[in-house]
Simulated scan of single mutants.
Amino acid sequence: MRRFLRERSLSLVFGGLFLAALVGQFFAGHADYNERQAALGQPVLSLGAYLFSADFLVDVVENWQSEYLQFFLYVTATVWLIQRGSPESKPADKAGLDTDKNQQVGRYTNEDSPKWARVGGWRTTFYSTSLGLVMLALFLFSWTMQWIAGWYANNSDPLAEQTGLFQYFLSADFWNRSLQNWQSEFLAIASMAILSVYLRQRGSPESKPVGAAHSVSDRSG
């Protein structure tokens, strides 16, 4: 059991932090929502009603969609784009899809390789892009959920202008919710790519070795 927990500690710790933050957001959001409702003389919601409300859902998924957009763009853009000296980037001479030999696909697979890396054809092509595709699908799903939940929450507000679903997609509220999250994700990616050129975190795979030259991009330095 100890080995099991140690070897999965990264996902377990961040999964626990996610649940704790989500629960905290739920209670804080419920209190904030009821304070606003009371100030406007509107009915307040119980905890159970707020849990299944569009207001809570839209607050959750608008953050999810921006995170999945960040990872989709990151895992796909770093195939071709580089940042000299950053461990978040490949060296300039390795930009691109890389060779079958280095990627261990087709005849270069071994007995432990995933089946779809070995069989060739559309399955290997699909598997070769599966991480980016799943991140894109999760982004589109959560962004769609934000759209629908935001529209429902807007139309449930007696003080807001009632709109159709597609009209809400073009509204300032929908795009403000989306863009305020996107800009922060893009800033975080750019900051990590640039700061990791000059700064170090000993022992982290996201950092170069402490003594590596600033100009070195790969971690092996």
Rank of each mutant, 00 (worst) to 15 (best):
E88M: 14
G48D: 01
A117W: 08
Q83M: 08
P114S: 04
Y152K: 01
R118G: 04
W147K: 09
N102F: 10
I82T: 11
Y127W: 10
K90V: 02
F139L: 01
K94Q: 05
L40H: 09
K115M: 09
K90G: 05
E111H: 14
K101P: 00
S113Q: 10
Y108E: 01
S66H: 07
G150A: 04
F72S: 07
T109L: 07
G85T: 14
F72Q: 05
P87K: 02
S66C: 13
L45E: 09
Q42R: 13
W80I: 10
F71N: 12
L51R: 09
P87V: 06
L133F: 14
W64L: 14
L97N: 06
A49L: 03
T129H: 13
Y127V: 00
L45D: 01
F126C: 13
A92Y: 11
N34I: 04
G85K: 12
G48R: 05
S86K: 03
A77D: 08
L40C: 03
W143L: 13
D32N: 11
R107S: 13
N34E: 06
F72L: 05
A95D: 06
G150H: 03
A149E: 09
S130A: 12
R123C: 06
A117Y: 06
D98E: 04
Q146S: 08
L97R: 11
W64H: 07
T129G: 02
N34G: 05
L40Q: 13
